[in-house]
Design a protein around this nucleic acid. Structure first.
Lengths: 243, 243
DNA sequence: CGCGGTTTGTGTATCGCGGACACAATAGAC
DNA sequence: GTCTATTGTGTCCGCGATACACAAACCGCG
């Protein structure tokens, strides 16, 4: 079933299955090449980008709607996913969406809630970059990672959402072992160290950092080391189960 | 205009002015007699209580809707008001609301969004207890303060909302001078001390607390003292302007 | 096969903040 | 004037965070 057909059905009554004027938007973050990345969608017929989002079914809890978006865009389930803020400013969305529907040859009633006002609940997802498979949705024709601090300006109020998502990660990282979600199952201390430095935006003493993180019992050292590069082989770690 | 008339108009089309399936609920907290209080409404024709809430106008930002609820229930404007979470579970609300509409002799379509599912955005408001004038809304016939830790079980998911609001206050109190909002403009150090002990739920050394709070520059000591009781007169303080 | 370069693993001295604690000052009651 | 309850203030101590240096080891090269 192609996008045009899906959307035509949506506007022909399929929209009733969803809560009007409400959406969830996911800031899906990954860590790669020493940089935080965010997953963005390019909308059909445009060069404009936005966060992946979706509408909420009438009988669907908010959290599940967010989990659905995450799984559809990345193929991942059971991921760190946290709601962080509802964005409720008033914005007229017609301008942004008109080219999309035009390129699909779909007529949307000018007063349909989707092109007028949408209150969006922002979710933060932290994923293992290597495990995610970026996949566009019906509105978009491209889905890929961008550098969190170097991406095109986003549609709607999504720049605000990304900013706030980043604040949330920075905050969470200092109180809980959420870094687990951003790394592969097994990782080295230098990798974890670099992740923290990147997110917090400042240098952390290598030795103090190691002491700090190990004292908290977040990680568990394995007997194995990671070899292959021309210097001392670092130990491998994995995150400790909840305790 | 009485409640019956307002609600009749609402269900006769007035509901179109609002975003369906969405509400804001305010945890309005005050401090009195050494206890945290929360403002609750008793619904018409019942002995059930809930948080004050309201629907969001189509052209109204979320924050403004919350501010409107706050001002209508307390008479206060420009108050500390912070969104803290969106509650998006699925709950059927018919059971809770039926007695209300019955007592008013109003017929509500069984599939109307208001009696089915509502996603609620929770706001936390901190007010000066003495300045607030509790006022019921059209759904309720009583509005009054309850002890935050000793109130009747609430309608819908409002017990969850209150719990989370309390978590939010406790967290905020330690990082920002929000206690200002819970006290009169001028207050004494023992009063502020008791407020912190109450909210944090533990004793705080009087001397260390004073040192801590003054070092942060949250408060400003006035030359005046508060007299009238038979022991050493405490200084008056006020909160420092943003700096 | 051994040497060099680069990165990782670990331990110790120091500082600052938070917590424990004691005594002097004072307003009103009598 | 005395007494009592409460407030104002300063010092000591300990732990956790920060600053910092040296030994170990893997690969690559000659």
């Amino acid at each position: 079933m192609d996008a045009r057909q899906v959307l035509t059905e949506f506007f022909a009554g399929g929209d009733r299955a969803f809560i009007p004027n409400l959406s969830v938007d996911c800031s899906i973050l990954g860590f790669h090449d020493g940089e935080l990345k965010v997953l963005l969608l390019r909308w059909r017929g445009t060069d404009r980008w936005s966060l992946p989002g979706g509408f909420v079914r009438q009988d669907e809890p908010l959290d599940r709607a967010a989990a659905r978006v995450l799984s559809e865009r990345t193929g991942l389930e059971r991921i760190y996913l946290q709601q962080f803020h509802a964005f409720g400013g008033v914005d007229r969305r017609e301008d942004a969406l008109a080219p999309v529907f035009e390129s699909l040859g779909i007529h949307v009633p000018a007063d349909h809630w989707m092109v007028r006002r949408v209150v969006s609940v922002g979710y933060l997802a932290l994923v293992d970059f290597a495990q995610a498979t970026p996949t566009p949705d019906v509105f978009s024709e491209e889905c890929r990672w961008w550098d969190l601090h170097d991406h095109p300006p986003l549609l709607f109020d999504h720049d605000d959402i990304v900013t706030r998502a980043f604040d949330t990660v920075r905050h969470e990282l200092q109180s809980a072992p959420v870094a687990a979600s951003l790394l592969p199952e097994r990782f080295t201390m230098p990798e974890l160290h670099r992740l923290y430095e990147t997110v917090l935006g400042r240098t952390l003493d290598r030795r103090n950092f190691q002491k700090w993180i190990r004292e908290r019992g977040f990680v568990e050292r394995l007997d194995e080391r990671k070899t292959g590069r021309s210097h001392r082989a670092p130990y491998l770690y994995r995150f400790a189960e909840a305790q």
